[in-house]
Design a binder for these strands. Structure first.
Length: 464
RNA sequence: GGCGGCGUGGCCGAGUGGUUUAGGCAGGGGCCUGCAAAGCCCCGUACGGCGGUUCGAUUCCGCCCGCCGCCUCCA
C-alpha cells in the first residue's frame, strides 16, 4: 500500500481510504491569469504520476482539480488588455489544457470553476457567520482564525510566530492580522455577485473548500498542491471546513519548487519560464522524465543541461522500444496493473518498482528499475536469450507506461522519398563495398538531421 | 527574528550503521562494426567541516559553515 508524506503530521503514513478500492484526490489547479509556467507543469506532472500509480495499483481514482477563474490579477489583467474577464480566462484555460495534453497529463475527472460555485460559497460563508466564526467589516467578511482549533497545522508553526510575521492590513477592523477574507466587497467597476453582505466576490481560499467537499464529500483522501499552498491557502481551506464542522482532507501532499539558478521560480520574482517555451525547444516527455528523476518534495533545477540529460535518457528508452518493437501501452489509456504488459512480466522488477513507488512515491528508484530492465533486455538480446530479453523489455515498457512515459519506436519518424532513396543508395554502395560513397551518403543524411545506423536489414535512419 | 529543508563521485540524483553495486548523463578502456552509430562489459577509491555515541558513521546526536524556502500574492 502506498505510503505518503503527510504535511499535516510531517510523517510518512499509509493513505487511509474511506472505502476499500477507491480513492479521491483534490489538487489545487491554476489561476488562469496568464501562461502556464514550469511550476504548474511540475505539480501537474507530480499529481498525474500519483494518479497513474494509484490506477496501476488497481484503485478506482476520482481526481478533481479546479480552475480559478475569478481573482484580483485576472480582473487587473483583463482590464489592462481591454478584454472581458470571461474571454480572458477562457483563452488562458484553453492554453492550459493544450499544454497539459502535450505533457501527457490526464484530464481530471472534474474541473470545477470558481465562478460556477459562488452561490455555494456564499452559503458556506453565511453559515460561518451564523456560527459566529466569521464577521463582517466595511471591506468584507473575515474568518476569525483564532476560533479555529488547530490553526497553524499546515504552516507547521505556532500561531504566535505566525502572527509576528503577518502583514499589517489596511483594514483595522480585522480582529487578528491572520484573519483572512471570505468575501470581498466590490469596488465600483469590479465584477460582483449579490450576497447578504453586499455585492462582491469570494476570497480565494473559499472556492477549494466548497468545490472539494461538494464533489468528493467529507473526509476525502488526499488534498495536494505546490508547497507554497501549504500556508496560507490550504491552512485557510482547512480552517473553513473545520469551522463549519466538516471533516476535510485526510492527507495533505505538497510538491517542491522548480528552481532557477538555485532560487525559487515564481511569478513575483519574474524568473519563470513558460511551459510553451520549454515545449518549443525540447521533447515534451523530457520534462516528465526530469520531474520523475527527483523526489517530488525536492527542488528541481530546470536548465538546458538537465533537460538535455533527460532527453538523452529518453533516447535510451526509445532505442529499447525500437529494438524490441514495443507497443504504445498508453494508447489504451493508463495501465491498471501488470496485466497491461505486452507479454510475461519480470515479477521481481515489478515488485521493486512497486516498493519504490509505495515509499512516498520514490520515482527516482522506480525509474532506476526501468533503466535497469532496459540494460538487462539489451544484454540478454545480445547473447540471443530472447525470452529473457523480451520479458525485460516488455516489463520496462509496462513500468514506463505506468509512469505516463510514452516510448517512441520507429513508427514516429516520417521518412520522405528523397531520404529513403539516399538510404537505399547507401545500401547499394555498402553492398558494393564502396565505403567512400557509403560514408558520403551517411554524411549527407546526417547533415539533413538524421541518425544513421547499420543493421541486418540495411541502413536504418531516424530523426536526431 | 520564528519555523523548516538541503549540502553525495565531472554533472543530475537515490539510498544505507559495517559486507557487492542505486540509476541516468558525460568521460576513459574493451567487445561488436568496413568505419561509425546503437548495444553490451569494465573503470573511476562520493558522501560540507569539527566533535560525540559506537567495535565500526556518509548513514544516529551536537555544534559550525554554506545554500534555499516559508512566516505576504504565488504550483
Amino acid at each position: 500500500m502506498l505510503q505518503l508524506h503527510d504535511t499535516a503530521t510531517g510523517e510518512v503514513a499509509p493513505l487511509r481510504l474511506r472505502e476499500p478500492g477507491r480513492v479521491s484526490l483534490y489538487v489545487c489547479g491554476p489561476t488562469v491569469d496568464g501562461v502556464p509556467h514550469l511550476g504548474h507543469g511540475r505539480f501537474s506532472l507530480v499529481f498525474d504520476v500519483l494518479r497513474r500509480y494509484l490506477l496501476f495499483s488497481g484503485l478506482e481514482v476520482t481526481y478533481v482539480s479546479n480552475i480559478t477563474d475569478i481573482e484580483d490579477k485576472i480582473i487587473d489583467r483583463a482590464a489592462a488588455q481591454g478584454v472581458p474577464i470571461a474571454e480572458f480566462t477562457a483563452a488562458n484555460e484553453a492554453l492550459w489544457w493544450e499544454i497539459m495534453d502535450a505533457l501527457g497529463v490526464l484530464r481530471p475527472d472534474e474541473t470545477p470553476h470558481a465562478t460556477a460555485y459562488v452561490d455555494r460559497m456564499i452559503a458556506l460563508i453565511d453559515d460561518l457567520v451564523v456560527r459566529g466564526v466569521a464577521y463582517e467589516t466595511a471591506t468584507g467578511v473575515y474568518l476569525s482564525v483564532l476560533d479555529v482549533p488547530g490553526y497553524g497545522l499546515l504552516a507547521r508553526q505556532p500561531l504566535d510566530t505566525l502572527r509576528a510575521g503577518a502583514r499589517i492590513e489596511a483594514d483595522e477592523e480585522k480582529r487578528s492580522p491572520l484573519d483572512f477574507v471570505l468575501w470581498k466587497k466590490a469596488k465600483p467597476g469590479e465584477p460582483s455577485w449579490d450576497a447578504p453582505w453586499g455585492a462582491g466576490r469570494p476570497g480565494w481560499h473559499t472556492e477549494c473548500v466548497v468545490m472539494s467537499l461538494d464533489l468528493l464529500g467529507e473526509g476525502f483522501e488526499l488534498h495536494g498542491g505546490g508547497q507554497d499552498l501549504m500556508f496560507p491557502h490550504h491552512e485557510n481551506e482547512r480552517a473553513q471546513a473545520v469551522a463549519d464542522g466538516k471533516e476535510f482532507a485526510r492527507h495533505w501532499m505538497h510538491n517542491g519548487w522548480v528552481t532557477v539558478g538555485g532560487e525559487k521560480m515564481s511569478k513575483s520574482l519574474g524568473n519563470f519560464t513558460s511551459l510553451a517555451d520549454l515545449l518549443a525547444r525540447s521533447d515534451a516527455r523530457a520534462y516528465r522524465l526530469l520531474v520523475l528523476r527527483s523526489h517530488y518534495r525536492s527542488p528541481i533545477e530546470v536548465t538546458p543541461d538537465t533537460i538535455a540529460q533527460a532527453e538523452a535518457g529518453l533516447s535510451r528508452l526509445d532505442e529499447l522500444a525500437r529494438r524490441f518493437a514495443l507497443p504504445d501501452l498508453l494508447a489504451q489509456g493508463p495501465p491498471t496493473g501488470p496485466g497491461a504488459a505486452p507479454g510475461p512480466v519480470d515479477a521481481d522488477a515489478v515488485a521493486a518498482f512497486t516498493a519504490a513507488m509505495d515509499d512516498d512515491l520514490d520515482t527516482p528508484g522506480a525509474l532506476a528499475t526501468v533503466f535497469d530492465l532496459a540494460r538487462r533486455a539489451n544484454a540478454a538480446a545480445d547473447t540471443g536469450d530472447s525470452e529473457v530479453a523480451d520479458r525485460a523489455a516488455g516489463t520496462a515498457a509496462l513500468l514506463a507506461a505506468a509512469l505516463g512515459l510514452r516510448l517512441h519506436g520507429d513508427a514516429g519518424d516520417q521518412v520522405d522519398d528523397v531520404t529513403a532513396g539516399l538510404a537505399r543508395e547507401r545500401d547499394a554502395a555498402r553492398e558494393a563495398r564502396d565505403w567512400v560513397r557509403a560514408d558520403a551518403l551517411r554524411d549527407q543524411l546526417e547533415a539533413a538531421g538524421w541518425l544513421v545506423e547499420d543493421s541486418a536489414e540495411g541502413t536504418r535512419i531516424r530523426r536526431r
